[in-house]
Amino acid sequence: MARAQGEPRIVAELGRPETPEETAARKAANTQAYRGSKNVRNLLVALAVTVAIVVVMFLIVPRGDLPEQASIAPGPVAAEAAKEFGTVLVPALPGEAANWRINAAEVVPGDPASWEIVYVPEGDGFLRFAQGFEADETWAARKLGGTTPSDEVEIGGLTWQVYDVDPEDNGNVAHALGTQAGADHILLYGSTSAALTAEVAEMIAPQVRALAEEQE
Rank of each mutant, 00 (worst) to 15 (best):
L196H: 07
A79P: 00
V56A: 13
E216T: 14
V165P: 06
L144K: 03
E106N: 11
E213Y: 05
V153M: 15
G15H: 13
S71V: 02
A174T: 10
L187C: 03
Q207W: 10
P67A: 04
T87K: 14
V162E: 00
D111F: 13
V45I: 12
V51M: 15
L127T: 07
E199S: 13
D111I: 06
P62G: 02
E134R: 14
L66H: 10
V45T: 10
A105E: 01
V11K: 10
T147Y: 01
V153F: 10
E199V: 15
M203G: 05
T179L: 02
V107K: 01
P167M: 13
Y189F: 10
V208I: 14
F133P: 01
D164P: 00
D111C: 00
Q180A: 13
V11D: 15
E214I: 01
E214L: 14
V88I: 06
A183V: 03
Y34K: 07
P149V: 07
A201W: 01
S37W: 02
D166H: 06
F133L: 02
V61E: 06
G182D: 03
E84S: 13
G132T: 02
P121S: 10
V77Q: 05
S114G: 01
N170I: 01
W139A: 11
G190S: 12
A201P: 09
A113I: 06
F126P: 01
G182Q: 07
M57W: 06
P76K: 07
I117N: 06
L158I: 06
I60A: 13
K83C: 04
N42E: 13
A48N: 06
E18G: 05
D136E: 10
I72T: 15
G178K: 08
A12W: 09
V120N: 14
Y119D: 09
A48K: 02
A195M: 14
I186H: 09
V118K: 06
A130Q: 12
G125R: 01
T179G: 05
D166W: 11
V118T: 15
I204N: 09
N42A: 14
A140T: 09
E7Q: 12
P112G: 04
E213L: 14
L14N: 05
G86Q: 00
P17E: 12
V162I: 00
R209N: 07
G178Q: 08
Q69I: 04
T192H: 00
S191F: 05
G171S: 10
A98C: 04
R9T: 14
T192I: 05
G171E: 10
W160D: 07
G171W: 09
L43C: 10
P8V: 09
I53N: 02
G178W: 05
A140V: 12
D169H: 08
F126D: 08
R41E: 14
L44V: 11
P167N: 06
A2C: 00
G157A: 03
A174L: 06
L158Q: 02
P94D: 11
P94N: 14
L47I: 15
D136G: 15
A174D: 01
A82N: 02
G125L: 00
L43P: 02
E134Y: 12
A205K: 00
L43D: 14
R26A: 04
L196Y: 15
A140M: 04
A33E: 08
Q180W: 03
A205D: 00
P167A: 12
G156K: 12
G125W: 03
P74V: 01
L47D: 02
T197Q: 09
T23W: 11
E137T: 11
